[in-house]
Simulated scan of single mutants.
Amino acid sequence: MPKDLSGVAAELASVRHLIALGYEDPLDVAAREASVARSQQATLHSAEELLKRDAPTEAIAVLEPMLDAPSDWPAPHHLLARAYFRTGQWGAAEEQLRWLECRGVEHAELALLRARLALRRRSLAAARDHAEYASRLQSPLPAADALIGEVELRRGNLIAAEEAYRRASAAAGPQGAAWVGMAAMAFRRGDVAAAVDAALRAIEQEPRLATAHYWLGMALVQMQRPFEATAALRAAATLGPNLAAPYRLLARLAAEQGDFAAAGEYRQLGRAVIARRHAGRKN
């Protein structure tokens, strides 16, 4: 028996009325949201891969457009905080950390980033507090111990610093930051041979760790080995674009060798680093 055409017309009219009111089929909505989620996950994965390849600037370019979407998804903000920190955009990193904190997002890496930013501001008590909180969120956490060691070293508490560095260096896996701390402590004690050994240990574990090359260069300067020191300090400057200290030493070494043009270039490069850091604080 044929369906009543008047009934079909009424159904169509009802559908048109619902559409006019903004009704969407739940299945269509779910499919669209799933498609957006897949796209966001793919973008996030791309950014993570860029960060693993030590390309934070490229990661930022991928992540920043994700913030335009009306979403409280914390993952892009987390990765952006890491990427901004790596590129020396301290103010932007803090902004992302505040966004995450306001939404109750807790993670050991975020606490460590707050600790490192506090250390940059020379807020030693805050840096230690954040590092200890990070170690409560994830234990063991060698990076937190290494940061606590740096805080205590800056305070002049060598025994506490050494204890923290030894805890960090005893953990499984590469612990370059801990060995950098041991190198700094040895240098401070005047044991330059031990400083060289610790710095080389750090470089062996993490070859791209700029501060390891820096302390190696510092120790080699004290050992009157200017050519090896220059190579180490150049590596530190290349790997640590936010470090100005290598350029100061390079300028001094170049001047001692009579290369005043190179000394001037190194001073200029050091001033450029400091200018970028000041700009990063304002941002």
Rank of each mutant, 00 (worst) to 15 (best):
I19A: 15
R86G: 05
A93M: 04
R166D: 15
E33G: 01
L50H: 03
A275W: 06
A118Y: 07
M1F: 02
P56W: 04
L158E: 14
R114M: 09
L63W: 14
A34G: 10
P2Y: 12
A161N: 04
P65K: 06
E163P: 01
L63A: 06
A69M: 06
G91M: 08
I19Q: 15
G104A: 07
A186R: 03
E163K: 09
R136D: 13
L250Y: 10
R267F: 05
A261F: 09
G280H: 12
R281M: 10
W179D: 13
I19M: 11
G258L: 13
R277I: 15
G91P: 02
V273L: 14
Q138D: 10
A231C: 01
A75W: 10
V196A: 05
V196M: 10
A83S: 07
R267G: 01
A160D: 10
A272N: 14
E94T: 13
R38D: 12
G181W: 03
A143M: 12
A69Q: 05
H107Q: 13
A198P: 05
K52D: 14
R281Q: 15
L141F: 05
Q40M: 08
P241M: 02
D72K: 11
Q40S: 05
R86Y: 10
A93K: 12
L253H: 07
A236R: 01
E109G: 08
R82S: 08
G258A: 11
D4I: 02
Q268D: 11
R155W: 09
R225P: 00
P26L: 14
P65F: 01
A146N: 04
E256C: 00
I19G: 07
E58P: 00
Q268A: 10
N283R: 15
G270C: 11
P74N: 09
L51G: 06
R98L: 12
Y133E: 14
P174K: 09
G88P: 04
L63N: 09
A125G: 07
H78M: 12
A177D: 13
E49C: 09
R103N: 06
E106Y: 03
Q96H: 11
A83M: 05
L27F: 07
D197V: 05
R82G: 00
M66I: 01
T211C: 00
P26D: 09
L209A: 04
A111Y: 13
L137G: 06
A198F: 04
A231R: 14
R271V: 02
A170F: 01
V180D: 06
V29K: 10
E64V: 08
R86K: 13
A193F: 09
D28S: 12
V221A: 06
E162F: 02
F85G: 03
R128M: 11
L220C: 05
S6H: 08
G22C: 12
N157D: 15
L158C: 04
E101G: 09
A212S: 04
A170R: 01
F260G: 10
L124W: 15
G156W: 14
R116M: 08
A202E: 05
H107T: 02
Y247D: 08
A194C: 03
Q268T: 11
P26R: 10
A160M: 11
A143F: 02
Y84R: 02
H107A: 13
